[in-house]
Amino acid sequence: METSCRKKKEDDFHVLHKVPSGDGPYVKAKHTQLVEKDPEGAIIWFWKAINGGDRVESALKDMAVVMKQLDRTEEAIEAIKSFRCLCSKHSQPSLDNLLIDLYKKCGRFDEEIGLLKQKLRVIYRGEAFNGKPTKTARSHGKKFQVSVKQETAKILGNLGWAYMQKSNFMAAEVVYKKAQMIDPDANKACNLGLCLMKQARYKEAQLSLFDILSGRFPGADDSKACARAQQLLTELKTCRQPPSGLPENLLGLDLDDEFVTDLERLINVWAPYKSKRLPIFEEIDQFRDQLAF
């Protein structure tokens, strides 16, 4: 009876603190992280788990997350790169997602862009989600289904934001417009409006932001999106007229022909009635022709 009660208390403890049972280094790492609230000590135990072959995939992911929280981002990146070879093929996409977050946090935008493009190529080849149309995701303890279409729009949104951090606003505009064709939402519409403002295309930016406030996009009733759209419209009132000539950020365009072709193919699949070539692609071609001279 006493043994049964003790076991029940131990089980309740593991459930309450979300700590796995056992006495290996990975379990000790989680106990140190979640119960003792000692992230530095947890990292030491995570390293021991990885080196000892104890739940390597979980230890590597959890250690990277803890390192990110401690602003040891560069160290987390190197750890994933060095030890992901010990992890299964099934875990590689989630490791890529971690790397993308880490690259974003430490400002390594070129590497973030490269990895986002790589994830899109996996989708183009039909290899995402192990060939299935949806996958089960988890957020704040709740499970939900994500479609390949939604995943593509999300990746494109992240790619657009990364281009914006490099002040490559034309490339960001291309990507955001494609993302909106696939799965429109108010947040991406705000970012698109900001891209247009940065290119001094104020009238187009104004129309894009008005669309948000008029409730045209899913999520437009989100108070944060509406507040941001209103803030950008206020900023627009102080903007000057667009300068003459070609915008300088065209020189930083980072969209190779193969990538543009792949984007067009996705639009043909998921937005067949919106698949006409965007005017911005004509602008890109015209600018490239001028550079050729």
Rank of each mutant, 00 (worst) to 15 (best):
V122F: 05
A229M: 04
S208I: 01
W270A: 02
G193Q: 03
D285W: 02
K8P: 05
L70I: 01
V269I: 12
L156C: 13
L86R: 09
P218M: 00
G126T: 07
E151T: 10
E40H: 08
A59C: 03
H17V: 09
E2F: 11
D71K: 00
G53K: 00
K203W: 08
S88E: 00
T134C: 09
L251C: 13
K154N: 14
G131F: 08
C106D: 08
K154G: 15
K142N: 14
R277Q: 10
Q118M: 09
G41H: 03
A162E: 06
K177R: 15
R138T: 14
D185T: 06
D96L: 01
E111N: 13
V269T: 09
N268G: 04
A64H: 01
R216N: 08
V146E: 14
R55L: 05
C85K: 02
E2Y: 08
M170S: 14
S214K: 03
C85S: 12
R121C: 13
E151H: 13
L263H: 04
K166Q: 15
R84L: 03
L159F: 14
A200H: 10
G24F: 05
S275W: 00
E204C: 04
G219H: 01
D62G: 07
L196I: 05
E151I: 04
R108T: 13
A271L: 02
Q150D: 14
D285T: 09
A205E: 01
R125T: 12
K8S: 13
A171Q: 02
W270Y: 15
A189R: 01
V56N: 03
C85M: 00
F129V: 10
A229Y: 06
K132N: 14
K68Q: 11
P93H: 00
P93V: 01
T134M: 04
N268C: 02
N51W: 06
L251Q: 14
Y124L: 10
Q92R: 01
D71Q: 02
C87S: 05
A59T: 03
S94K: 00
A49K: 01
I43Y: 05
H140D: 12
L266D: 02
K119G: 09
N51S: 09
P25C: 01
F13K: 02
R240H: 14
W161S: 15
K105I: 12
T238F: 11
E36K: 12
E10N: 10
E151P: 08
V146G: 12
F217N: 03
G24I: 01
L263P: 06
W270S: 02
I123A: 13
K237R: 08
A49D: 07
F210H: 14
D222C: 07
E74G: 04
V65Q: 01
A225Q: 08
L99D: 11
K143R: 11
Q231M: 02
K68F: 12
C5I: 07
D254V: 03
K237Q: 15
C106Q: 10
R201K: 12
Q230S: 15
R84M: 07
K188H: 09
D285C: 03
A29D: 07
E235G: 15
A271F: 04
A49N: 05
M197E: 09
I155D: 10
T73N: 02
K198P: 07
D221H: 03
S139E: 10
C5D: 09
D96C: 14
D101K: 05
A220N: 03
I280Y: 05
K142Q: 15
H140C: 11
A205N: 04
L232C: 11
S167A: 14
N168P: 04
Q286E: 13
L115R: 07
R72Q: 13
